[in-house]
């Protein structure tokens, strides 16, 4: 309160700033609400009046969207995501731990080789990857996505976990080793449990990546039954013709899991994002 008296202009500043921030909230949130409201209308109501409230909430649009393919896109995304996350963490943590804790020949070379992967844009490799996956008979399988996702997420995982492993004291592991644990047991019993926050960050980042990845999923899988959420959703635009309300419902359904995840684990999200500093 003291400060207000000292500078009378401050109250105005506070009010204006808050008003401005609330305006931004509206800009961010209103489009989503608009989509949500319209997703509850019937198609003809949408065309006649896209601004009012629905005369009767049609949750059937959600059922339509779900039954017209979204359920299988969901399953595909979950399968691909779960396997990718598992292997990214398993391989990434072993790799990072090895590099952080042990000295061996060519260590730096390997480390930079892995990190170099961060520099390469997946898009630029589309044509060769496509031909390679076809050659390996993996085209149009889950593995086409899983393998490429792991390959492109590993550098990031190693990068994050490596600096984390470096930052915690070696004494813990040493004492475990004195108690008779082998290197691998030390790793699984001591190191991984302590690293839970970073593992969570990597898992979440990989989950977001898989949930949203588009171009690989578009090119490496051909059958509509195998589509993951992003490609399946884009496909809705063609397949459902003018059944727009079902598309809108699809947008909402596809967005819910990540938002829920964020609400539950927002700390790991933010740290994962900031440590990684990589977009899309």
């Amino acid at each position: 309160m003291k400060s207000y008296r000292r500078r009378p202009g401050r109250l105005l500043g506070v009010t204006l700033t808050n008003a401005f921030m609330w305006l931004l909230v509206i800009i961010v949130v209103y489009p989503i609400i608009w989509i949500f409201i319209n997703s509850l209308k019937s198609n003809s109501e949408l065309f006649l009046n896209s601004f009012g409230l629905p005369s009767k909430a049609m949750f059937s649009n959600y059922i339509d969207a779900w039954n017209q393919g979204l359920s299988s896109y969901f399953m595909n995304s979950i399968i691909v995501g779960a396997v990718s996350i598992f292997f990214t963490i398993a391989l990434g943590s072993l790799c990072a731990y090895g590099i952080a804790r042990f000295e061996f020949k060519g260590k730096n070379f390997i480390f930079y080789l892995i990190l170099g992967g961060l520099l390469l844009s997946p898009q630029a490799s589309l044509v060769p990857l496509f031909r390679m996956l076809d050659f390996l008979k993996l085209y149009n399988t889950y593995w086409a996505l899983i393998l490429t996702y792991i390959a492109y997420r590993l550098p990031f995982a190693v990068f994050l976990m490596h600096s984390y492993f470096l930052s915690f004291p070696k004494e813990l592991e040493d004492s475990a080793r004195i108690d008779g644990c082998g290197t691998f047991t030390t790793f699984t019993r001591i190191v991984l449990p302590i690293s839970r926050p970073i593992v969570a960050s990597v898992a979440i980042m990989t989950a977001i990546f898989v949930w949203n990845e588009f171009i690989f999923a578009l090119v490496f899988v051909e059958d509509a039954k195998m589509y993951t959420i992003p490609v399946g959703l884009a496909n809705f635009k063609d397949a459902l013709n003018t059944n727009w309300t079902a598309i809108l419902a699809g947008i909402i359904i596809a967005s819910i899991p990540i938002i829920v995840l964020y609400m539950l684990l927002s700390k790991s999200f933010i740290s994962g994002l900031t440590e990684g500093s990589v977009k899309g």
Binding site: E222, D223, K225, N235
Partner: peptide, 15 residues
Amino acid sequence: QAISNDPFKEKIKIV
């Protein structure tokens, strides 16, 4: 297997 109209035109060449 199925691919919808517009993507089909691209995908069939790839496939």
